[in-house]
Design a protein around this nucleic acid. Structure first.
Length: 432
RNA sequence: GCGGUAUUGGUGAAGUGGUUAACACACCGGUUUGUGGCACCGGCACACGUGGGUUCGAUCCCCACAUACCGCCCCA
């Protein structure tokens, strides 16, 4: 094959795209119930928007960004995640101004790009649905957004959900913990895996997340972030837990959960699920948290933020057949033309029906009636209209209800002027 | 970026160093004249991811590359 799509990208074909439309439409519905409004930001931004927000040393910035110089010498990057661009837009458009509702709540959906090794549910161009809420430090906001994330997944009937919760505390808590963790790990340095030795230098919290057995044994004895929270950080987290309880939302505290992006603090969460699609292993579908310093970091005032990102490809892998089956679009009318002379009449008929708001299709390959009926059947046509020489002569057409097999002869004029009536008449007779 | 597995028609796949690359599904056509199912018959691979090499000869052996999938890193 001469041309192939770039590594890690996908063509979303008809049949697949209906699922995307369904997921996107459902998400919009839910978000709007929570009063989030859509924001659309560019697919690429100035490189610094991402390097500043995600952290200069984060993996995303150092090895996964698609960055390039444009013809004007600007250093740009394809967005690897959604939050940074939204925050930039929030600041640039001064959405923190007094005339806007607080919290300022937005959602987005679209492609993201990360240069990494593709795997199931993980691509170089992938899609996220995400939300951000700015301007409230209330734990109630944390909980509401988490609840919305759960709502989203529940709307798709995805089971085996697990909400994992942790807090990174405020900068003060974080620094104290950072120190304690490093002090704990240093004496074990030689026992750590090669990966973790590097992590200890770059981002010690990552060691907590190691999949290496020996590392995990060491981590077991490590201090917990929860013991290093300042009073206010602890109060925030306690309130979050209490409110989740008030909504009867189950969660598990995972003090070893960390984040790939540097901008998070306080509450962080992940929603995971197990599915055959991921080899029955746990896979994170939604992840998010609080990022109180980020708006300021990107040049805005001290405005807090809370949001999450949802991996669409991963979500799609979880949609079960029951949900997707009912998505097939039914064809209202298939027009069968018999004989070469019928093409004009057939064309006029499909056009007239389409103009009345119904879907209509026909044959374009001069196939025999039997083959045309087969197509009608395959397309799940509700009604077939047949036009042959006799019908043309008499200005009539055969109209057949495919479910019952009942066929009537009707004037062409009726079909072209009031197909709605014909259609509902058929539907009613089916009910009986 | 590292390690592993895979790559045959529209799809699922079988197969061998050597004249015709199984089988099934799908699709198209037919089984007499204008109607959806079933049955039966027939058709359907510029040749086995791409490029090199070994060989008298390779889809089957070797190398490189590409892509997919799995594990690691990381992550949605």
């Amino acid at each position: 094959m001469k041309y192939q799509r770039p590594k890690g990208t996908a063509d979303i074909l008809p049949g697949e795209s209906v699922k995307w439309q369904y997921v996107e439409a459902t998400a919009r519905q839910i978000f709007e119930a929570y009063r989030f409004a859509e924001i659309r930001t560019p697919m690429f931004e100035s490189y610094e928007v991402f390097s500043r927000s995600s952290g200069e040393t984060s993996d995303i910035v150092t090895k996964e960004m698609y960055d390039f110089e444009d013809k004007g010498g600007r250093h740009l990057a394809l967005r690897p995640e959604g939050t940074a661009g939204v925050v930039r837009a929030f600041v640039e458009n001064k959405l923190y101004g007094p005339e806007f509702n607080k919290p300022y709540k937005v959602y987005y959906m679209g492609p993201m790009f990360r240069y990494e090794r593709p795997q199931s549910g993980r691509q170089r161009e992938f899609h996220q649905i995400g939300v951000e809420a700015f301007g409230s430090e209330s734990p109630a906001l944390d909980v509401e957004v988490i609840a919305m994330a759960l709502n989203l997944l529940q709307a798709f009937k995805i089971g085996h959900l697990k909400l994992a919760l942790n807090t990174l505390g405020d900068p003060e808590s974080r620094q104290a913990y950072h120190e304690a963790l490093v002090n704990y790990l240093k004496p074990h340095f030689d026992e750590l895996s090669e990966d973790s030795k590097v992590r200890l230098e770059k981002n010690p919290l990552r060691v907590l997340d190691s999949k290496d057995k020996k590392d995990q044994a060491i981590v077991k004895g490590a201090p917990s972030i929860l013991d290093f929270l300042t009073d206010s950080a602890k109060a925030h987290f306690d309130e979050v837990k209490q409110l989740l309880g008030a909504l009867n939302i189950d969660y598990v505290i995972d003090p070893t959960m960390v984040r790939g992006l540097d901008y998070y603090n306080h509450t962080i969460f992940e929603i995971m699920t197990t599915s055959p699609a991921f080899g029955d292993k746990e896979m994170t579908v939604i992840a998010g948290g609080r990022y109180d310093g980020l708006v300021h970091e990107l040049g805005g005032p001290e405005v807090s933020g809370f949001g999450f990102g949802c991996g669409l490809e991963r979500l799609l892998l979880l949609l079960n057949e029951q949900v997707t089956k009912q998505l097939a679009k039914q064809l209202a009318v298939y027009v069968v033309g018999i004989g070469t002379g019928a093409s004009e009449a057939t064309l006029k008929m499909v056009q007239a029906i389409r103009q009345q708001g119904f879907s209509a299709d026909r044959d374009y390959l001069d196939r025999k009636p039997k083959a045309q009926f087969k197509s009608a059947d395959r397309n799940q046509a509700a009604v077939v209209i047949t036009i042959g020489e006799d019908e043309i002569k008499n200005k009539t057409a055969q109209v057949k209800d495919m479910a019952t097999g009942i066929q009537k002869t009707l004037p062409v004029a009726t079909l072209q002027q009031d197909f709605q009536k014909v259609y509902t008449d058929f539907r009613n007779s089916e009910g009986k």
